[in-house]
Design a binder for these strands. Structure first.
Lengths: 135, 135
DNA sequence: TTTACTGCAAACGCTTTGCACCCAC
DNA sequence: GTGGGTGCAAAGCGTTTGCAGTAAA
């Protein structure tokens, strides 16, 4: 998956800020990022990149379905690569560890909820919170 | 359940702001409130009650386990009476309708997640988002 | 050359906090 | 009388926006 190429295909301009952010997302090996983390990493490559630009780039990538974002109870939003995204993520309240649920289980959870309510679709944009075994 | 009495038992002072907020929570028949809703209702009974006081009162009531609050993707926090609280709530993205999952299903969902991760507890403080059948 | 994109700064919405006053105990 | 609680105003936080300048096409 080449994020920059996807942008080019869509007719978006390839700016340095976009190249830097895309490269971090694709090559850092992380599955999830807070906006500040991402911004901090971007600043290492180009110290003029603004936080607003990071937000705008993430919004763009989310619109193309390359990434997805969730909200946390405290602190900033969490961005996930779409390929690694499995619908449900759990953050440990104590150590901030993140576990990702496999797609099958995520689907099972959503089906269970749909069956018990009059909702036809679950578009859950949240991370769960919990306590992992270590904590 | 008498919220005011609970406060008295704990040695908290019974002020007018607290009486007003407690009465709204207990007698309005709603199961959930946004902070602004609650504040607006409180102002009808005493137009000097401050938003900050509403927040402080809600925090107090949450500490005593009489209410619970969740976060929404957009807009303010959502407060629930503890007795009506069933762990999982879904807000329709389109019409803002809220559905509450029954406790048994909520437990089932949480158990499913626990079995598939190394989390020992789910302390999920979020509302789900989705689309209800009407929308 | 054109205009999409940028950095900057300011504004946003929700929530929390500092502080001096006040009133429940 | 005392200190817990209040209203008020300001600050906090993550995020969004307006704008004039810049650089990708």
């Amino acid at each position: 998956m080449d994020f920059v190429n996807e942008l080019r295909k869509r007719g978006n301009r390839i700016t340095n800020a976009r190249e830097v952010v895309c490269k971090i997302l694709e090559t850092s090996g992380h599955e999830h990022f807070t906006v500040e983390e991402l911004h901090k990493l971007a600043l290492k490559k180009d110290k003029s990149i603004d936080l607003a630009t990071v937000y705008r780039t993430l919004e763009l990538l989310e619109n193309i379905n390359l990434i997805e974002h969730s909200h946390q109870a405290h602190g900033s939003g969490l961005y996930f690569l779409k390929e690694a995204y499995s619908n449900i993520h759990i953050v440990c309240e104590s150590c901030d560890d993140i576990a990702d649920l496999d797609q099958a289980t995520s689907k099972k959870v959503n089906k269970l909820i749909k069956n018990k309510t009059d909702f036809k679709e679950i578009t859950n944009h949240f991370v769960y919170t919990g306590l992992c075994k270590k904590c």
